[in-house]
Design a binder for these strands. Structure first.
Lengths: 95, 95
DNA sequence: TTGATAGGCAAGCCTGTACTTGCCTATACT
DNA sequence: AGTATAGGCAAGTACAGGCTTGCCTATCAA
């Protein structure tokens, strides 16, 4: 997979939704992510499409993977987002 | 111009460079931005290309404009970046 | 060893978008 | 009025990226 920067990785709503899901339920497999996107987000994408999205996120460093047996678990890593905060002023909105 | 979200607007190195320039020298005109990109960043783009980039940034709310006479001044507005910080944990790296 | 489960690879299609080219409008100056 | 300056509009091109389809590999269980 070609290296991808954090900006490109974030420029897709499906990938952003995947990050949302991983940040609330860490360590999911590809099939788990597929069914959650289908169930909770009405996203009817093929497994391959999701897999490619995960590949982009991983190549940007936003997702780390760990393989055990047949399964591959995906973890959200927010560290690369620092590139944005390093570059421009960014602030959380008050709730 | 079609509405553009902050993620799409940031997914282009030229646009990110424009934000850098505006954040250090605010209130520049299109021609000023053109020459700075050419001089300081070796970017040989046409005026129209830069103008379209500014349009994308403006439609994402990252650039605000103010017209006086023939000139149009561009200002960096980091507020929309909050959408990123609201969604995921993001932290400035220690220098 | 056979079948089921979890995932990977690669080619092709199709849309979106970055960029150029050519022409047009508006303001300012002499 | 005529000309230069600052910017806008719109069509065309070319390429990147999202998605699908089809097939392949690896692990586990009966």
């Amino acid at each position: 997979m070609v290296m991808v920067d954090v900006f490109r990785a974030l420029d897709d709503e499906t990938r952003r939704t995947i990050l949302d899901e991983l940040s609330s339920h860490d360590g999911q497999t590809l099939f788990e992510i597929c069914s959650i996107l289908a169930m909770r987000h009405n996203l009817s994408l093929t497994r391959q499409a999701i897999s490619q999205h995960l590949g982009v996120l991983e190549s940007a460093g936003l997702v780390a993977t760990e393989r055990r047996g047949r399964s591959k678990f995906h973890h959200f890593n927010p560290a690369p987002l620092a590139e944005i905060a390093d570059r421009w002023p960014i602030q959380k909105r008050i709730q």
